[in-house]
């Protein structure tokens, strides 16, 4: 067990435990806060995978953007009297059975498949390479995503503003 392994298990446990709470807690606000820890854990895993830029983007976009958006969603769709906003659950038994089987199947696929491992050379920073790739090989996708974001922005605004007839 070296530091790398310890860190990995630490982050894996943070991620999975908080994800577990996200999907089981009945309180919506708690759920959102556990999601925060999940995102941080995943960001830690990215760092261990030598993807520093993705980790930063993960924190900025997911924590800074999407999570805030979700919190707004929670608050705008409930009559807020206290933080104790409950969310009901349905088909608990059948769902846990189903996802349990799914998890078993997926995990066994992951473990028993003979992956071709060929470690890539680790760069001290990936930002420069990623930036160059974004504006060369991936420039079309990059521009398209820009347009997509614009459309999403306009679409979201127009959908949310629509008045009830």
């Amino acid at each position: 067990m070296n530091y790398y392994d310890i860190l990995f298990y630490l982050f894996a446990i943070i991620t999975l435990a908080s994800a577990w709470f996200v999907v089981t807690t009945r309180n919506v606000i708690y759920s959102a806060f556990f999601l925060l820890f999940t995102f941080f854990g995943v960001a830690g895993i990215y760092v261990l995978l030598a993807a520093d830029f993705i980790a930063v983007v993960q924190i900025m976009v997911y924590v800074g953007g999407i999570l805030i958006l979700l919190l707004f969603g929670v608050m705008l769709t409930n009559k807020i009297t206290n933080v104790d906003i409950k969310s009901g659950t349905a088909n608990l038994l059948s769902a846990s059975l189903l996802t349990g089987v799914l998890m078993g199947a997926l995990v066994s696929v992951m473990i028993f498949t003979d992956w071709k491992v060929e470690p890539a050379e680790i760069q001290t920073t990936t930002i420069k390479t990623l930036g160059t790739m974004l504006l060369t090989d991936y420039v079309l996708f990059f521009e398209l995503l820009g347009i997509l974001l614009l459309i999403a922005l306009i679409g979201a605004a127009s959908i949310a503003r629509r008045e009830k007839e």
Binding site: N91, S94, A95, L98, T99, V101, L102, A105, L106, S108, V109, I111, F112, T113
Partner: peptide, 18 residues
């Protein structure tokens, strides 16, 4: 969604990639 997951599981068991 549950149906989809069920179908995925069936496919996984059918092809047995592991």
């Amino acid at each position: 969604v549950a149906f989809v997951v069920f179908a995925v599981i069936v496919l996984l068991l059918l092809f047995k990639p592991f």
